[in-house]
Design a protein around this nucleic acid. Structure first.
Lengths: 226, 226
DNA sequence: TTGCATCTTGACCAGTTGGTCAAATCAATC
DNA sequence: GATTGATTTGACCAACTGGTCAAGATGCAA
């Protein structure tokens, strides 16, 4: 299992923690996510995180040894959720349905956890100082595995030839854009993914663009069987 | 003309500056771009910018009143370059050629000025504290104008119906992804846009995906005239 | 050369911030 | 309810950082 600065990447709750410890660590991680995603690592302050979590700075540092430890724990905390959708891509499923489902999940996460998206984006944009090893190991393994599935669909003539990596990058880029640049999206459209109507519209636009882009029908027409 | 914290958005060199002033302001802006894009506003330090520009911190503050003033000047300095490609989208051109050219320019900029891309991304992700007014005024005006062109192409039956805003967002997201997340791209592919081969491959992949996505032929086939 | 404005810098200051520590408080077990 | 370990906090410290200031260095025009 990959870890970040000693923080296990799994979202599993460490078992040896008391009731108070688990409650406080969760409060801290929740507050840290908000703070780090809003201000970045340097801009965040331990004092604000503590205040947001409802405790003193000293007490926060009783639970995490340093600011960097909090940051790593917050990163580890979101990483599983972040990578989960890609894992569900199934070689035996229908390509259109599989990719549509993947895009739907990514947009759902962008809508539900925009802070997680921004935290991750921030980390990677600064050169991924903490999670580069995970990108190079775990993520690369996962992406290589799923790229093979897409290549299989191409070989079977189910989708147009396309470099699977660029397809994956395109899906990541578009879906995360709506979370990371929500301020810009809101400035231009007046809405963002927190609006259910806009979320549905975005999902349809992105899905149909990408699926049509690789030669698939979307939304699926009953034409051939009518 | 829009401005940011008193800094004119135009890249025009102020005319009333001495030779020394112009040289030093440029050195500072260059250094500031590197520093702010790498560490974000909070993480950047005036001292490092000054060192990178080859002068003392005091001297830097002789040219710019504050850290925020440097930041705003750097932002203003890149904004024109950043928005230029969209301005070239021509209603009278061929949709496929026009959009392909736009994507090509965006990728070119991502490849040539990745730091500018990251600086802009950072600013927007933090809520666009400095340039929100520009997004809401200048950018919105430009995007509205170009959306009308795309809508015109749809009405003329030249491209499939698609919300122009989502199309534009998709182009922004994909092209900028390769600059902003270059570390992740490199971790997964071993290459980035600084590699001419990878840049060409990326341009082809993104262009064909998006153009096919809206019902255009790309790369253009001579099929109909053969 | 001289005089003046521009340019440059080191010393310094005040506010912020991550982190330490000893003491106080709380919770659970006997 | 006494004891012991876990939890919580305020006081405090050292490093860093943005910004000021007075003085010196430099460029330039007459």
């Amino acid at each position: 299992m990959a870890d970040i600065g000693g923080q296990t990447a799994a979202a599993s709750k460490p078992v040896g923690l008391s009731r108070i410890q688990e409650k406080n660590r969760n409060l801290i991680l929740e507050a840290a996510l908000g703070e780090f995603s809003r201000y970045g690592f340097s801009g965040a302050t331990v004092e604000r995180i503590a205040a947001e979590a409802g405790m003193s700075k000293s007490n926060l540092l009783y639970y995490f040894a340093s600011k960097e430890a909090i940051y790593n724990a917050a990163l580890a905390h979101i990483l599983d959720v972040w990578l989960a959708p890609l894992k569900t891509l199934d070689a035996n499923g229908d390509p259109a349905e599989e990719l549509a489902a993947y895009i739907r999940q990514k947009i759902e996460i962008s809508a539900s956890f925009p802070e997680a998206s921004r935290l991750f984006a921030n980390e990677v944009m600064q050169g991924a100082p903490q999670i580069l090893p995970i990108l190079e190991a775990d993520l690369k393994r996962l992406v290589t595995e799923k790229s093979a599935i897409i290549d299989g669909w191409i070989s079977a003539g189910k989708i147009k030839p396309v470099d699977p990596l660029h397809l994956i990058f395109t899906i990541w880029a578009t879906t995360q854009h709506y979370a990371d640049f929500s301020v810009q999206v809101r400035a231009l459209t007046g809405r963002d993914l927190s609006d259910p109507g806009f979320k549905a519209e975005t999902e349809m636009a992105v899905t149909s663009l990408i699926l049509n882009g690789i030669g698939l029908d979307w939304p699926k027409e009953a034409a051939s069987s009518a």
